[in-house]
Amino acid sequence: MSLNDDDIKQIFRFMDASDFEELNLKTGDLHLIVSKRKGGCATPQAPTGTEAQTPPGQRPAQAAGPPEIGEAPEVVKPVPTRAPEPAIEEGLTPITAPTLGVFYQSPKPESPPFVQEGDLVEENDTVCIIEVMKLFNHIKAGVKGRVAKICADNGAMVEHGQLLFLIEPESN
């Protein structure tokens, strides 16, 4: 068995999301150590057990206090990505943009919109189009339910991952 780049990335993602602190994988002549502990992935060595332990699920640096004096000045400006999104009410399912592109509610400017607030949608219904350079991506609802809110403006650019619709799921 050998690992390719994608496998390694998968392992990183898994580790990042997991509560494990270290992964030690030996296969054939490959020895991979992935560690979230202090000191990073330094030389392979047996765990000493004397290191300060970080509570599971908490990355060490996130627990760091305020910046020390003498450090590079902190940037005070908030992250200027798109406007803050409304908190998603409990029980509503978001439909987000799978790509950056231009959001269209209808197939043609003169056509009625695919969906309006209050409409019922099936999983495979198209709810909008996102255009990336003349490539028209039909976005499916992916969930059965009622359209509670349309969160993007027709004709506006939406970012990757931006909230487009909130759906109130209907159980069968």
């Binding site: 940037v75 992250v79 990505t81 790509t99 950056l100 231009v102 350079m133 650019m157 990757h160 931006q162």
Partner: peptide, 29 residues
């Protein structure tokens, strides 16, 4: 840099083939 720029736009997932190397999305952005 996302904090320093006047605006940041998310163009795609972490994999550069779908973000930093995606010409169509960059032009649209």
């Amino acid at each position: 840099p996302a904090q320093l720029a006047d605006r940041a736009v998310c163009i795609g997932p972490a994999q550069s083939s779908a973000s930093y190397l995606n010409i169509g999305v960059l032009i649209t952005a």
